[in-house]
């Protein structure tokens, strides 16, 4: 395999489409998705596997795409947030995020959606504690966690109560 440092040809399977890309082997999967394929749903925030804004699925598992090289993802099935609503119809998890107001500025949201997609595939009926452990690899600065937890609990096959003990008080 040609390892550069100049551009080399790599083959990726992204959202069930074969992609042939000419790029430097030092580029991360995130850089290739965003810059070469125009899939800008995954975001670059911490750029070192902490915040989860770049989360995509690689062979169905959650991966920080900032922290693997595109050249190393060649034999894998890669799924990005763009694969979830190809015709614009939101899937059930996306709808749950919308209903629970689980997004404010929205920059972390695609990463959370992808992370939650894989999380729910592994655990279709998570408890609050499961969610707090299983979703801790993604960070949000606006503080939408209560909404995210509510969204995931609403997806659970056995509904539970959420962290949001909301009771807006009405007077008069």
């Amino acid at each position: 395999m040609d390892l550069g440092p100049g551009p080399v040809s790599i083959q990726l399977n992204v959202n069930n489409q074969a992609q042939s890309i000419n790029c430097e082997p030092c580029l991360t999967l995130l850089q290739v998705l965003r810059e070469k394929l125009g899939l800008t749903g995954a975001k670059q925030v911490c750029d070192r596997a902490t915040c989860g804004a770049c989360t995509v699925l690689v062979n169905g598992k959650r991966v920080y795409s900032c922290s693997i090289l595109a050249i190393d993802a060649q034999d894998a099935k890669i799924e990005t947030v763009e694969s979830l609503a190809p015709d614009g119809t939101l899937d059930a998890l996306q709808q749950a995020f919308v209903a629970a107001d689980a997004s404010q500025c929205g920059y972390c949201t695609p990463g959370f959606i992808m992370s939650a997609t894989a999380f729910l595939a592994d655990n279709p009926s998570p408890t609050k504690e499961d969610i707090r452990k299983g979703m801790c690899g993604n960070l949000c600065r606006c503080g939408t966690y209560a909404g995210i937890e509510e969204a995931l609990l609403s997806m659970s096959k056995t509904p539970k109560t959420s962290a949001m003990a909301t009771e807006g008080r009405k007077r008069g």
Binding site: C51, I131, R132, K133, M135, C136, N138, L139, C140, R141, G143, Y145, A146, I148, E149, A163, M164, A165, T166, E167, G168, R169, K170, R171, G172
Partner: peptide
């Protein structure tokens, strides 16, 4: 930053009406 596991239970009461 604060993570999803750090928030405890949050309860908000809006004074309205």
């Amino acid at each position: 930053l604060c993570g999803i596991g750090d928030i405890g239970t949050l309860e908000v009461h809006l004074m309205s009406g």
